[in-house]
């Protein structure tokens, strides 16, 4: 039970790579573009290109690829379930039937759809993980705050929202640590979490999550008091230790992104979608 080892989303891996040193606004914008492009990619060729580019990004970030892959592991069951669902449930009128199982039939269209969706989610997750691995939560939220600032005009409390995110991200880890502790404590008392059927297993989780939730509320309360004691009264009147500054490497990154997006959009348009 090493939960904290597997949660890579929201964990920053300090480094000095070219990606680490980009302005967070550049990285957030780039990640957004990458994700939007993912939604339009519907051919294996497009995903091949995406895979290449993602691999290049991981290489440039200097983050061991094993680290990224380990972060994907907890996603695996979800991905498999999604894939199976698409395989059996997605149909087009003229598609070939691959095989039948009970009342379900797996079709070729379903297979492709399953593959596409799985790839999409996989890369979506990889891109976000890469963003959070190379960007400290602080610069991530600073960047977000700066990017969201215009929305203040339409009444969105962007600073407060971002502060909420800052805290949520920090607490993901603390809660994971706590969950690990509780599970270990229950295991020490002889609870076998990996035995029994689905319902039995779920039942065993109640005594785990209950203390976790209660603990989380207590933490939140204490945190509010601690923030208040340090003169926090909302975003108004706050200043920042660091201001964001774009550099020449951000310009280069923009060019790379432009070139990549151009090529990918060309591939998306010119290659017949698989579905």
């Amino acid at each position: 039970m090493e939960l904290t080892k597997n949660i890579t989303l929201g964990v920053y891996l300090p480094g000095q790579s070219s990606i680490h040193n980009l302005d967070p606004r550049t990285k957030i914008s780039a990640a957004t573009i990458l994700i939007v492009l993912l939604l339009f990619a519907r051919s294996y060729e497009a995903y091949g290109l995406i895979a290449l580019f993602t691999a290049a990004l991981i290489f440039c970030s200097g983050i061991p690829s094993g680290y990224v892959i380990r972060g994907l592991k907890p996603m695996l069951p979800v991905l498999v379930i999604m894939w199976v669902f698409q395989l059996f449930l997605y149909k087009t009128p003229d598609t070939a039937i691959l095989f039948e199982w009970w009342v379900f039939e797996a079709t070729e269209a379903g297979l492709h759809m399953g593959n596409l969706i799985t790839l999409r989610v996989l890369f979506l997750f990889t891109v976000t993980t890469l963003l959070t691995l190379t960007t400290s939560v602080v610069s991530l939220t600073d960047g977000l705050e700066s990017l969201l600032k215009p929305l203040k005009m339409i009444g969105l409390p962007s600073q407060e929202l971002v502060m909420t995110l800052v805290i949520a991200l920090r607490f993901v880890l603390i809660l994971a640590e706590e969950l690990e502790k509780i599970i270990k404590a229950q295991m020490a008392r002889g609870v076998a979490f990996d035995q029994g059927n689905f319902i039995q297993k779920t039942k065993k989780l109640f005594p785990v999550f209950l203390p976790l939730f209660i603990g989380a509320f207590k933490r939140a309360e204490e945190l509010i008091v601690a923030m208040e004691a340090r003169s926090y009264t909302g975003g108004k009147g706050r200043t920042k230790m660091k201001t964001l500054r774009m550099s020449s490497s951000d310009l280069s990154a923009a060019f790379v992104m432009l070139a990549y997006s151009g090529i990918l959009i060309y591939v998306i348009i010119s290659v017949e979608p698989i579905i």
Binding site: Y12, R230, S231
Partner: peptide, 17 residues
């Protein structure tokens, strides 16, 4: 009581407020 995910940023939280 630590708010930020980086030590120096957390120390800066009060002065920023």
């Amino acid at each position: 009581q630590l708010i930020s995910s980086i030590v120096e940023e957390d120390v800066a939280f009060g002065p920023e407020n």
